[in-house]
């Protein structure tokens, strides 16, 4: 069990999301940074999609009531285990009674705590992701609260023979540097933007608004305008869709986006770059660059190949650390 001593700003149980229910209005939810979730899970010997904790900006304080094996990936800052600095991007044994404190994540916006065996809450509609905005999923469909007890599976018992001396290199999986340009594809209504707005979208920096959340990331910058107003009938939208409400400040839809929307769709963040947007903090800037679908596909393949290679490598390294069953 993991006992929640302090929930932090917004900490919730997430896996790789809920699929197949969009037709009844149930969205995907899931980890905002799928890279960090996947790697944290692999580091403790889980499948990529095991349920873990997503912790936002100001993380939780947690007590383990049983021995476990954990890994922390993604945003970091002052992470402590019983007061000592917590090594990140590597598997670690923790003993019953130990307290992990993730207050003040300073680099990146979202950190992921994976536990060997996964967080064993009961899945809802095929997923252990909490859809905070929809109030749907395990944990009563809400973020962590003080006093919550998260069940761990039997597989959570420590399997490490020793703590490794190595850590995974976060780059290129985790890159919160605002200098990194995020890549978008043309949306259906990109050409409906007036020429000045098209230019601004792809050349000006946009700031991440404080009201950004798991539903969408609001981008503050030069107001974008259409050449002429569009009357649109609501249609499906996806994570990464850049919508333009009448006010002219675009919203990049994220994990908990509504399944349908009626605003113009001016661009789409490529799937490969969505984890990087998830790590931008309120007030930080984003620059967007337009690429073609074949470039996006080349980037996706490179990312998938690199990730698969890393998985093979990690499996071998973990084998060396594993206790005899």
């Amino acid at each position: 069990m993991i006992e929640v001593l302090r929930p932090g700003l917004l900490s919730s149980v997430q896996d790789l999301g809920r699929r197949g229910h969009a037709a009844i209005g149930v969205g995907g939810a899931g980890a905002m940074d799928s890279n960090a979730l996947t790697l944290a899970n692999w580091l403790v010997g889980n499948d990529a999609g095991a349920a873990a904790l997503e912790c936002t900006l100001n993380g939780p304080r947690l007590r383990f009531t049983a021995d476990a094996c954990i890994a922390w990936c993604g945003a970091d800052g002052e992470l402590r285990l019983d007061g000592a600095p917590l090594p990140t991007w590597r598997p670690l044994p923790v003993a019953a009674g130990q307290v992990l404190d993730a207050a003040g994540l300073r680099r990146g916006a979202r950190g992921y705590l994976a536990v060997a065996g996964g967080i064993a809450v009961a899945p809802v509609l095929g997923s252990r992701s909490v859809d905070v905005n929809a109030g749907l999923g395990p944990c009563d469909g809400r973020a962590l609260q003080t006093g919550d007890q998260l069940p761990l599976s039997d597989a959570a018992r420590p399997w490490l023979r020793r703590t490794p001396a190595w850590s995974l290199m976060p780059w290129p999986w985790f890159d919160p540097a605002p200098a990194r340009v995020l890549r978008v594809l043309r949306g259906s209504h990109f050409d409906a933007l007036d020429p000045a707005s098209r230019k601004s979208l792809l050349s000006e920096p946009f700031h991440i608004a404080a009201e950004s959340n798991r539903v969408g990331v609001r981008l503050l910058g030069p107001a974008l305008q259409l050449t002429a107003p569009l009357e649109l009938v609501s249609a499906a939208v996806t994570a990464g869709t850049l919508q333009l409400p009448p006010g002219g400040q675009p919203i990049m839809l994220a994990a908990e986006h509504p399944t349908t929307g009626g605003y113009p769709r001016i661009a789409h963040l490529i799937a490969t770059d969505q984890p990087h947007l998830a790590q931008r903090r309120p007030g930080e800037t984003v620059r967007l660059a337009l690429i073609e679908p074949d470039e996006a596909e080349a980037l996706r393949r490179r990312h998938a190949t690199a990730l698969a290679r890393l998985h093979d490598h990690l499996r071998q390294r973990l084998q060396e650390l594993r206790c005899a069953p």
Binding site: R19, G20, A22, A23, V233, S234, A235, T259, T260
Partner: peptide
Amino acid sequence: ELVPAYASLA
């Protein structure tokens, strides 16, 4: 996913 809306299907 198949996502039907008023006049479109994603």
